[in-house]
């Protein structure tokens, strides 16, 4: 049945169709973008002047709205003077796909304009370093605290109400404070990512740990486990795969704080690169840099997903309750046969 029907309600599609649709999900926006870029009559609201003609305020390589161009064209024709020439273009902020594709390469090879400016790979490296330290520092405190909160009501009552409150304070609001305390370099940026990640992390992991099947804990108790060993040998391993998934999601959130963090103090990293390129009106580089963030984030997640199957062999056959593979397991590579 499922093989014949593309739109079977909640029915899994055959592998080939799944792949095809995945491809389409990326292809569709690219096709739309290509159409707008390459098909002249679809949008192209501007005209790029190639010959000034007898219009004084036109200059070569100038982009003017089509209406203005048409008006001047009519005027010159009526007056019998030399008409201006030009072709229709999109605004500068919408470069064509091939320009952005080229920028993926040229952005790396173009020397920075100013002597002290970082290269693109240095900017990216800086951003990744900022994320890394913010996330690692947050996890070093947040994960153990989350596990304690999930395991013991004592810590849960002691910590969570305040964290619950603090989590509503937007991390960027601490920007000025962080700069005052930690200076203008990387310190405040890492602090912003820490603040943005930490409070969510404790609550999310605390919740995950609380969801451990109590029957597993009771079974361990009847086998002689108690107190700390119960946490170490049962609660942590029982929740570790879910904690791992939480961490992947939290890492994604950390990326969203990156741009805000990099504006704090001296602008740095990929945000600085994007800003400079926009200032130079190199929008192809801007798009390439934004996409690079997406690519780095997404591929990190895929690598972590694959690493998960290596680390947690008992989860290799993960299926959701409905018998459908979970979202993450579908992104994972095939399990390695034992």
């Amino acid at each position: 049945m499922a093989h014949r029907d593309w739109l079977g309600l909640k029915m899994e599609l055959p592998r080939k169709r799944r792949l095809l649709l995945t491809l389409l999900s990326f292809l569709a926006p690219v096709v739309l973008w290509s159409a707008v870029s390459y098909v002249p009559w679809l949008w192209h609201p501007l005209v790029r002047i190639t010959a000034q003609g007898d219009v004084d305020y036109f200059a070569e390589d100038m982009d003017v709205p089509r209406a203005d161009f048409d008006r001047e064209l009519a005027k010159t024709r009526a007056a019998g003077t030399t008409p201006p020439e030009g072709h229709r273009v999109n605004p500068l902020y919408l470069p064509a796909p091939h320009e952005v594709a080229r920028a993926f390469y040229t952005a790396f090879t173009t020397e920075p304009r100013l002597p002290n400016e970082p290269w693109l790979h240095e900017s990216l490296g800086h951003s990744i370093r900022t994320i890394f330290w913010g996330f690692v520092l947050s996890s070093l405190v947040g994960v153990p605290l989350g596990i304690l909160c999930g395991s013991y009501r004592f810590f849960s009552r002691l910590q969570e109400p305040f964290i619950e409150f603090f989590r509503y304070l937007p991390a960027p609001a601490f920007g000025a404070l962080c700069v005052a305390i930690l200076g203008i370099d990387d310190g405040p940026k890492i602090a912003i990512i820490f603040i943005g990640t930490f409070f969510q992390q404790v609550l999310v992991i605390g919740n995950t740990v609380r969801k451990v099947d109590p029957a597993l804990i009771e079974a361990a108790q009847t086998l002689g486990a108690s107190r700390w060993r119960l946490v170490r040998r049962v609660i942590i391993p029982a929740s570790i795969t879910d904690i791992y998934t939480d961490m992947r999601i939290l890492l994604g959130w950390a990326w969203t704080y990156l741009i805000v963090a990099e504006v704090v103090g001296t602008m740095s990293g990929i945000t600085y690169f994007i800003n400079q390129q926009a200032r130079y009106r190199n929008f192809d580089n801007v798009y390439a840099a934004i996409m690079m963030i997406g690519i780095i984030g997404f591929s990190t997640d895929l690598i972590l997903a694959w690493l998960g199957t290596v680390l947690f062999p008992w989860k290799r056959k993960t299926r959701t309750a409905s018998g459908r593979p979970s979202l993450w397991s579908r992104l994972r590579p095939k399990p390695i046969p034992a």
Binding site: A215, A219, A238, I240, F312, W314
Partner: peptide, 9 residues
């Protein structure tokens, strides 16, 4: 127990 309480890991 009635439910399966083997440690899955």
């Amino acid at each position: 127990f009635q439910g399966y309480t083997l440690f899955p890991w």
